[in-house]
Design a protein around this nucleic acid. Structure first.
Length: 493
RNA sequence: GAGCCGCUAGCUCAGCAGGUAGAGCAUCGGCCUUUUAAGCCGAGGGCCCCGGGUUCGAGCCCCGGGCGGCUCACCA
């Protein structure tokens, strides 16, 4: 017998004992009328004498997370979705039977209690139980009360234990939901329409990532989990919806890291008749309002670095950014040989097949990105790495595009949308050629249906994608994306 | 995919130079009617991640593997 099985058997024995006494260990007939947080909120500041006048009876349910038991009385902490409160069980109030039941209860069990409020000698707000009822018996021991659950692997694989044992984890997910609600409110207020576009695409598009492949039996076709919703949201611009957004999952069949999970949540929104300049302003407003609501201020620390979201945020071109942070002269980066030399100098490995644009972006990723701690818009990405973006009027090698960095993380990517169907076809062709050149195996299929849609005229527009998981990382001071994804991808054990 | 680190009781962690595997919490038994990391007395609990090797002897050393973490690579 495995050793853990011994503990389980002990619990099972208690469960049988309860059944023998005619007690259902898994009933559902207890009704709550408050929460732990509500009690704290109402009575937190009331002194003991005042509390005595409160005769209300409170019905609470939750998990027993600690017990301090004496012969004829006991204290325990009850944890519900809002927090914890101490409960006092004493023979003269609950009766002998209930006290006996209580002796069969364990840390980890779910119980309902009803009682009145008082303050103990040491001043802790406590519910004195008149009644205690088992609501669900636990058969396995909970992680330790003091240190919680530390083992990272167990925390992710058994997230429910993490949520029970580590209150800060629960906070992260409450905050995550709050942030998403605020994003929705922000966009709804500006007359954006929330939509849901397909998650299964017959041609993966809108980004350049390797997709997950699946198969539809009845249709007899292969499908791909989407890598981006972009091409569908643009179809809706063509359809006249003008302002649309989607908050949903995307799937990329790439490596995992502290900032990459194979499925991740992205907000994408598109606004007709707007430019990327408009979106920079909108993004500043959006994220500062979220900071205000979630953190109450513009300054906070992320992984030991002070971040200040007070607008306006610096706006630099990609080359300016390299110049500022990389100590390279912009003119040196305009020539492929020089750029490659500089790239090698800073330790970037080049195969020799890279284009100038790719080298520039490589340099940026290597030395600038990790140093963009304060919110910074980086603009004018090369056309070649931006096949869906409108080219810059002054320099056709660049695009009207920006990425936003905070805390060294890429948070947003936005651009004026290319709406010339002929140019879009040309860009797809160029992309396809380049892909053929380097990765013979993986072709790039052109989405003819999308090009057809573009020919019906898409309004000039700007669109943006914001990585929700990374945004939540910033606002919760999380070092890894797995801390903000409630069930991150792991290898099956 | 590569490098580095980790994996010991349900949980959190010790363990050394290679010499019978430890603590706290949790569990079980006893005492205890305001405790709060409750306390006191007693007890049980281990494939030391898995497999091979070296050795009289391996949790510890060597080789292979698994899972996780970090870094790198990949990643518009």
């Amino acid at each position: 017998m495995e050793p853990i099985e011994e503990l389980r058997q002990q619990q099972l024995k208690k469960l049988e004992e309860l059944r023998r006494q005619g007690i259902d260990p898994f009933p559902n007939d207890f009704r709550v009328n408050t929460t732990t947080a509500e009690i704290h909120r109402r009575f937190q500041d009331l002194p003991a004498e005042e509390l005595e006048k409160v005769k209300d009876c409170f019905n609470l349910a939750g998990r027993i997370v600690s017990i301090r038991s004496f012969g004829k009385a006991a204290f325990f902490h009850l944890q519900d979705r809002k927090g914890k409160i101490q409960v006092y069980v004493k023979k003269e109030f609950v009766g002998e039977e209930a006290l006996e039941l209580f002796s069969c209860l364990d840390i980890g069990d779910l119980v309902g209690i009803s009682g009145i409020i008082f303050r103990t000698k040491t001043g802790e707000l406590t519910v004195r139980a008149n009644e205690i009822k088992l609501l669900a018996k636990s058969l396995r021991p909970l992680p330790e009360k003091w240190h919680g659950l530390r083992d990272v692997e167990t925390r992710y694989r058994q997230r429910y234990l993490d949520l029970i044992a580590n209150p800060s984890v629960r906070e992260i997910f409450y905050k995550r939901t709050k942030i998403i609600q605020l994003l929705r409110q922000f966009l709804d207020k500006r007359d954006f329409l929330e939509v849901e576009t397909p998650m299964m695409h017959s041609i993966p598009g809108g980004a350049a990532a390797r997709p997950f492949k699946t198969h539809h039996q009845a249709l007899g076709i292969d499908l791909y989990l989407r890598i981006a919703p972009e091409l569908y949201l643009k179809r809706l611009l063509i359809g006249g919806l003008e302002r649309v957004y989607e908050i949903n999952r995307n799937f990329r069949n790439e490596g995992l890291s502290t900032i990459h999970n194979p499925e991740f949540t992205l907000l994408e929104f598109y606004q007709a008749y707007a430019t990327y300049h408009d979106l920079m302003n909108l993004t500043e407003e959006m994220l500062t309002s979220i900071a205000q609501e979630v953190l109450g201020e513009m300054k906070f620390s992320y992984q030991g670095q002070e971040i200040d979201l007070t607008p306006p945020w610096p706006r630099l071109t990609l080359l300016q950014a390299i110049e500022n942070y990389g100590k390279a002269k912009a003119e040196d980066l305009l020539n492929k040989e020089n750029a490659a030399r500089f790239a090698r100098k800073i330790g970037l490995e080049l195969s020799g097949k890279e284009s100038l644009a790719e080298i520039q972006v490589g340099i940026f990723d290597m030395i600038v990105e990790p140093r963009l701690i304060q919110p910074t818009f980086v603009t004018h990405y090369p056309r070649e790495v931006s096949p869906l973006a409108r080219v810059d009027e002054k320099n056709p090698e660049l695009t009207e595009r920006f990425e936003l960095y905070i805390g060294g993380l890429e948070i947003a990517n936005a651009f004026c949308e290319l709406n010339d169907p002929l140019e879009q076809r040309e860009r797809f062709n160029q992309q396809q050629e380049r892909r053929r050149e380097f990765e013979a195996d993986e072709g790039l299929e052109i989405d003819e249906d999308f090009l057809c849609a573009l020919e019906y005229a898409m309004p000039p527009a700007a669109g943006e994608g914001i990585g929700i998981d990374r945004l939540v990382m910033i606002f919760t001071d999380s070092a890894s994306i797995r801390e903000v994804i409630i069930f991150p991808q792991l290898r099956p054990k």
